[in-house]
């Protein structure tokens, strides 16, 4: 009797673990199939690889290259900068208000369209910040 209960319990554990594993496998395949859709943005390298749909509106992400941010004279809201993933880079034109944390050498996610000259016309700009936190006064020693 006691053995039977114990065996029953072991069977239950196997059953639960097995079903958990199979559901995990299903989820894995779903995620694998949706891989290209789960990424929020494409990097410049991904765009130039031609494997992704860049005809419609999409999001471009990467770092704002140092020294590339320029404002067009006379037009306060027009900015141009270069987004890079340190292999390839794309020039971006944007008209509008930039988020507070947008700056050079920092992450950015821009949604918009790829123009024919392989530049990027941004409609919306989101700033991506990194995972470093440090007090103000420490930074001034750098």
């Amino acid at each position: 009797m006691r053995n039977m209960i114990r065996r029953n319990r072991a069977n239950k554990i196997y059953l639960i673990l097995l079903s958990l594993a199979s559901v995990a496998l299903i989820v894995f395949f779903i995620i694998k199939a949706l891989e290209k859709n789960i990424d929020l943005y494409l990097t410049p390298t991904q765009i130039f690889s031609g494997e992704y749909n860049t005809v419609q509106k999409f999001k471009l992400g990467g770092m704002v290259e140092k020294g590339s941010l320029q404002r067009v004279e006379g037009e306060d809201l027009v900015v141009t900068f270069t987004v890079t993933d340190f292999q390839n880079s794309i020039d971006v034109v944007y008209v509008g208000v930039l988020p507070n944390l947008f700056k050079e050498n920092s992450g950015v996610v821009a949604s918009g369209y790829l123009t024919e000259g392989n530049a990027f016309w941004a409609v919306e700009i989101l700033a991506k910040h990194d995972e470093n936190y440090m007090p103000v006064k420490l930074e001034s020693y750098d």
Binding site: L40, K128, Y133
Partner: peptide
């Protein structure tokens, strides 16, 4: 695993990128 707007983990097994003061 994916490109996200959310930043990566600050606290990993190799240490923390949040300053000790905070």
């Amino acid at each position: 695993w994916w490109n996200t707007l959310h930043q990566g983990p600050s606290i990993t097994t190799s240490g923390s990128s949040i300053d000790g003061e905070m």
